[in-house]
Design a protein around this nucleic acid. Structure first.
Length: 671
DNA sequence: GCAGCGAAAATATCT
DNA sequence: TTTTCGCTGC
């Protein structure tokens, strides 16, 4: 037998001359992560230890050493985070970094399935449905099966969807999930299972997928189809996952499948910052990483570069209150600043006034508004402040909270687009047909059955079916859809035509139609940013625009705005000054988490995350009283903050100006 | 089969 | 306060 010696590629041996001075710019541990070559690595990084920086430099370093940027996959928690990281890498190195693939798991899965879904029996041009659509389907199935009548105690649509979501994201058995989460429904498991079966079938027949499907079907695809798995894994030579503590079992499995060929994976996370268990995230994923990827390099980043030491002290003592301890203590070599403030306001509005005035003072001191953030537990916790900020003309953006695309009138218009993109989408058909007077659930369903069998799904004027009073309106709809389908209009032209058609329905259904029509006008502008209808639907499903984003867009402020954000959406971000408002027991921790120590711990971690966002100064504030949505109210400060002693926090006293200065007085008198 | 009315219930965080 | 369910009249 002959021997043939394969020599190592000489280019692999050549040392790379880096233009970037990584040794100078990074500490030892960061450098180790950045220079890490091949195989699996687990980076455990506390808050503010330069986790993002490390990832950014690693991708830049890989690209600089000749790795094709398109073969790097950066999975992050939000689209925003991925874009920011790619931007930073681009500014450190060069434009090659723009080709790096980045986004959320859901986004990546969406792209994957829009290429390969046909391999698992779905068309590639399926539509993604959001939570409210999913709930509607569940409700439809639930009613159709008659379970709503059989037993008053049958779980409602919200409960059903959350059970199903747990099954998928945590990879649980139905029986286990129900007996753990909802023991009261154990004896109805068979019926629940029926609902789930019908739900899955409905989605399959309508060519739609919900958020969980994106993950689950991707796993299924990659598991079943070796060819696709290999191809995909080869295409993603370097896989990186940020915020790994907030991934769930499905995402861990997906990570493994994506790396099946090369095993080049680096995950970064901090178990003390896990705040998404309500979505099935399991911070155990970090501990179990070595089981999934044999022999990973473990790198710990411990020195905090973000916050001044007194903020870290508050953060550390918060974490000590956890029922399940962390052996974690953040330290910093920064100069000591001021003690974090504890501000008690007499009312929610006084709290808003405090924040607004403090923000304005900081601005006067030369701190840019976008270096200041106000954080809160729930989207609605900032409503009062938003009014106050508007009154004082302080520009702001809000992350989290209500979504523009959730509003009924926007969903109505979007439903027409969905029908154009995917004529099998019953849900969307139902929505647009039921707008018409005289058409209810039954007629809509009959019409849909007929639509499916028709040659042209938009040709609705067959008088054998439609012979009632609403014939005229059906014809109008049909004409519109055929026109839009046959003519090659731009996205915003299509939206404009739809709004023209929708106007009458809007005026009839809503008292506040002028405002809604104005929203729709805004929507025309937004839609012009998308290249095609299907792409717009995908983008909006995975990255829905928040209402305030739309509003601030309109204002076109000349100054970078103040940031308002839910704590969940503040993940991974940082600001010089951070205000955490509504620190009341019942809000944070949420009143619904008080019974369960796991949930209570998560609320504590939430406050920990908020606290560690601050670099220079931190303010906790709470009003003496806050009303919940109905009836009850909260008056006690958050137990987490109450447990901190005065060496960690400094109470601030709010006092009102007694007398106005003379010139001010004149101003008030003349007005 | 549809629409409108009154009574009763009601978990937020996000993709 | 808002959403959801069930009933009634058309």
């Amino acid at each position: 037998m002959k021997k043939f010696v394969l020599r190592q590629d000489s280019s692999a041996l050549k040392p790379v001359n880096y233009n970037i001075d990584y040794v100078e710019l990074l500490n030892t541990q960061q450098l180790e992560a950045v220079m890490f070559e091949k195989g699996a690595a687990l980076v455990i990084a506390g808050a503010g230890t330069g986790k993002t920086r490390t990832l950014v430099y690693r991708v830049a370093r890989l690209v600089e050493s000749g790795v094709h940027p398109g073969s790097i996959l950066l999975l992050t928690f939000t689209r925003r985070a991925a874009n920011q990281m790619i931007e930073r890498a681009t500014s450190i190195l060069d434009d090659r970094c723009k080709q790096i693939k980045g986004g959320t798991f859901h986004f990546y899965c969406s792209q994957l399935l829009h290429t390969y879904a046909s391999e698992i029996g779905y068309p590639n041009d399926f539509t993604i449905i959001d939570t409210s659509d999913a709930l509607e389907v569940i409700q439809y199935v639930r009613t159709k099966l008659g379970f709503h009548k059989k037993d008053k105690r049958f779980p409602n649509k919200n409960t059903l969807l959350s059970i199903l979501s747990s099954l998928k994201n945590r990879n649980l058995d139905l029986r286990v999930a129900v007996s753990e989460l909802y023991p009261q429904f154990v004896n109805q498991i068979d019926s629940i299972e029926k609902v789930f079966e019908h739900y899955e079938e409905y989605k399959h027949q309508n060519f739609v997928m919900d958020f969980d499907d994106l993950l689950m079907k991707s796993v299924q695809l990659l598991k079943q189809n070796e060819q696709v798995r290999t191809k995909v894994s080869v295409a993603n030579q370097y896989v990186m996952v940020d915020e790994y503590q907030d991934t769930n079992k499905l995402q861990a499995e997906l990570t493994q499948l994506l790396c099946s060929v090369h095993n080049n994976v680096m995950v970064v996370g901090d178990d003390a910052q896990s705040i998404y268990s309500f979505r099935g995230a399991d911070h155990q994923n970090i501990m179990q990483f070595p089981e999934l990827f044999s022999n990973p390099r473990i790198i710990k980043l411990e020195e905090n570069y973000r916050s001044q030491p007194l903020i870290l002290e508050a953060a550390n003592s918060l974490l000590q209150q956890a029922s399940f301890k962390f052996d974690k203590k953040l330290f910093s070599k920064k100069d000591t600043g001021e003690l974090p403030a504890l501000v008690r306001a007499s009312s929610e509005n006084e709290q808003s006034q405090f924040v607004a005035q403090a923000v304005l003072q900081l601005r006067e001191q030369g701190i840019a508004l976008n270096e200041i953030a106000v954080l809160f537990r729930n989207g609605r916790d900032s409503f009062d402040l938003e009014i106050e900020l508007n009154r004082k003309n302080v520009p702001f953006v809000k992350y989290g909270g209500l979504k523009f695309t959730e509003a009924a009138h926007i969903k109505d218009v979007l439903a027409h687009i969905r029908v154009l993109v995917n004529p099998k989408d019953t849900l969307a058909w139902n929505r647009i047909l039921m707008l018409i007077d005289g058409i209810g659930p039954k007629t809509a369903e009959d019409l849909f059955v007929w639509i499916q069998s028709a040659q042209n799904p938009y040709q609705l004027d067959s008088s054998e079916i439609v012979s009632k009073s609403y014939l005229k309106q059906i014809e109008a709809l049909s004409k519109l859809l055929i026109y839009l389908n046959d003519n090659d209009l731009t996205v915003s032209e299509t939206v404009e035509k739809l709004i023209e058609y929708y106007r009458v329905f809007c005026e009839k259904r809503y008292d506040d139609y002028p405002k809604r029509m104005k929203d729709l006008e805004t929507f025309v502008g937004i839609s012009s940013g998308f290249p095609s209808l299907p792409e717009m639907l995908r983008e909006l499903a995975l990255d829905p625009i928040t209402i305030s984003a739309v509003e601030t867009e309109e204002k076109q402020h000349e100054e970078p705005p103040l940031v308002l954000s839910t704590i969940h959406s503040s993940k991974g971000l940082e600001w010089e000054h951070v205000f955490i408002i509504q620190c009341l027991d019942g809000i944070i921790p949420s009143a619904y988490s008080l019974e369960d120590e796991y949930q209570l711990d998560e609320e504590l971690r939430l406050l920990y995350v908020a606290t560690t966002r601050a670099k220079q100064m931190l303010y906790y504030s709470y009003p003496a009283l806050a009303h919940s949505q109905y009836g009850d109210y909260f008056t006690k400060p958050s137990r987490f903050i109450d447990n901190l002693n005065e060496q960690v926090l400094e109470p601030w006293l709010l006092s009102h100006e007694q007398q106005l200065p003379e010139e001010e007085k004149d101003k008030y008198l003349t007005e």
